[in-house]
Write a protein that binds this DNA or RNA. Structure first.
Lengths: 148, 148
DNA sequence: TATTGTTATACTCTATAACTATA
DNA sequence: TATAGTTATAGAGTATAACAATA
């Protein structure tokens, strides 16, 4: 095989796509895709609710993308929008009881899909991969902030 | 930060998106995006030409996606379609002289963008990352073949 | 003036199905 | 009958700009 298939950028796109595909398939029975699942996770882990702005920042999305995600989760009864007591512009997204239950099942499915996709790596190797990606991601957000 | 931002799948999507974005921006002056660049690379590295089917298989794309990519590269005068001498169904994609020259410049730009995105990793660490991703990608294609 | 959420729009990417011409 | 290329279409993801309500 040529040099292209050993390029880190190429491999990242390939592996990322594969993991997203596998995770989407695993979450389908819960009526979720990875993006929705990510938002649900943040809502469940924020007992006091989380603003859509914060969701967008953490997930690296544009705030306008979050609107549709929360709309669909709310329509499915998994989250609710509540006005923020301290800032009437902001709406806090909170998970419902049903949302938390779905989240538990979805987390198990997502973890299984991810482990399947990464089955060729040992536990230690996965941890190395995670640490390296984490550092790259962190420096990327630094750069983004630097240009603001 | 919560557990989500330390999930390997999340980090893969985040970092991959960042690298693709940076590479697309770096390739823009050459009128290319990463997909077109990948096809051009394969054409340049295949002196006798490469079938669109092979391009699709190597890049992990559907053959129908390759059509538009080759169309645009051909319209820009960077590649040509030639009938395969041994199989009249197949068309071999070959790079033109202009295509090879653009490829050289594009390769330098793409490498620079990638190094920028991965600047927080040492050379050794990048090699570790590359090797781990390569193994994951390889096992993924094994699984794909297993289901065919 | 700046920020939060929202709407609208356009473009890219992904996924399928069906068709043609060859093998 | 199977394969290479092609066309068409729909859905998902990404990127921007603009707007109303509020700070």
């Amino acid at each position: 095989m040529g040099e292209l298939t050993e390029d880190i950028g190429f491999l990242l796109a390939r592996v990322s796509g594969e993991v997203v595909r596998a995770t989407n398939a695993a979450l389908a029975p819960e009526g979720l895709r990875v993006r929705h699942y990510s938002v649900l996770l943040l809502a469940c882990d924020s007992p006091d609710g989380i603003s859509q702005r914060a969701v967008a920042r953490i997930l690296g999305l544009d705030p306008s993308q979050v609107v549709a995600l929360v709309d669909e989760l709310a329509q499915a009864g998994l989250v609710q929008r509540q006005p923020a007591p301290t800032d009437r512009r902001a709406k806090l997204v909170t998970a419902t009881g049903a949302g938390c239950r779905v989240r538990e099942r979805a987390a198990a499915r997502a973890a299984e899909a991810e482990q399947g996709a990464l089955r060729s790596l040992s536990g230690d190797e996965r941890e190395v991969l995670r640490a390296l990606l984490s550092r790259v991601a962190e420096s990327a957000s630094d750069a983004a902030y630097a240009f603001e």
